[in-house]
């Protein structure tokens, strides 16, 4: 087997990865130690100002909020849906409906949900679905994207859940169906309830897949940008690190602090990188 040829096969990929991913990562880390126009060296000044900036800190807080809620919600929903859909004949249709939002861009999803969250004062007829339901039930309408800090961030996170649950359902459903029938039957014969079967027999069998799905969701959530950028652009305290970085870069023309924020994002992501790397290496062995 010819090794020279093998190198050739790798070269284009190596070039692309080097130019677009590897070199820029190091370069950005370096830029974070320079000034707004990348001319003068400022040491840790960018980090100091970024970590004491209340705007960045609340972006960080929001990222953590997204992190705490979205992966858990999507995976849990995915599991539950995988289990209950397995019991009906029209499973495929419902799966397709839940999965559909994945094909729409986040921009499209944001537009869709902007109309769901639309607000009109109580004296006017409601045009947003949620506020219309509230009004029908006799409540005052709520500015879903304005009330902070829980309501609007949760409203945005809901859009994320709406888009990504389909992904989890697909994967978890396949894993669910991969649990050997005999195990389930044996437990049923032993008199276990459906819930017990689910918890003690099925879930452990799916553990690997659940872990992978969860990690994938975590990685995507940390990078969340589109939903926030399109729906509120960070106004009303909904900023996340990714959108803040863009603001620093293009809105305030400060490359140094933008790079610092990006590096911060990378640091957040590294633990998960390590976990999946370790798991990956373990499996390859």
């Amino acid at each position: 087997m010819n090794n020279k040829l093998a190198w050739l096969y790798m070269v284009p990929a190596a070039l692309f990865l080097g130019v677009f991913l590897i070199y820029p990562t190091f370069s950005t880390i370096a830029l974070s130690f320079f000034g707004p126009r990348s001319v003068e060296f400022v040491g840790l000044a960018n980090y100091r100002s970024v970590l004491t900036s209340s705007a960045v800190l609340s972006a960080l807080r929001n990222n953590l909020l997204w992190l705490a809620i979205m992966p858990t919600a999507t995976v849990a929903l995915g599991l539950v849906l995988a289990a209950i859909l397995d019991r009906v004949r029209y499973e495929a249709i419902v799966k397709a409906i839940v999965f559909l939002p994945m094909s729409i861009s986040f921009v499209g999803a944001s537009v869709i949900w902007k109309f769901v969250y639309a607000y009109r004062p109580a004296s006017r007829p409601q045009i947003g679905l949620l506020n219309a339901i509230l009004a029908r039930l006799g409540f005052e309408p709520i500015g879903w994207l304005a009330v902070r800090p829980w309501v609007n961030n949760l409203a945005l996170i809901t859009v994320g859940i709406w888009v990504w649950t389909g992904f989890c359902v697909v994967i978890l459903s396949a894993a669910y169906k991969g649990v050997p029938r005999e195990l389930v039957e044996a437990a049923r014969i032993d008199g276990a309830s459906e819930f017990q079967i689910f918890w003690h027999v099925i879930l452990p069998h799916m553990r690997g897949t659940i872990a992978i799905t969860f990690t994938t969701m975590v990685i995507y959530v940390l990078k969340i940008f589109d939903i926030v950028y399109v729906m509120t652009n960070g106004a009303f305290d909904t900023e996340v690190l990714a959108s803040r970085m863009i603001k620093e870069m293009f809105g305030y023309w400060n490359y140094g602090s933008a790079a610092a924020i990006a590096t911060l994002l990378l640091l957040l992501v590294i633990p998960f990188l390590t976990i999946s790397m370790l798991r990956f290496l373990r499996e390859e062995r």
Binding site: L17, V19, I22, P24, L222, K223, A262, L265, L273
Partner: peptide, 21 residues
């Protein structure tokens, strides 16, 4: 090692690459 690196790169946030690129 190379494959490991490639898989690891999936995780790099795109924001890290914008300014230099």
């Amino acid at each position: 090692f190379m494959y490991c690196l490639v898989v690891g790169l999936i995780i790099v946030p795109l924001q890290m690459t914008f300014i230099p690129v």
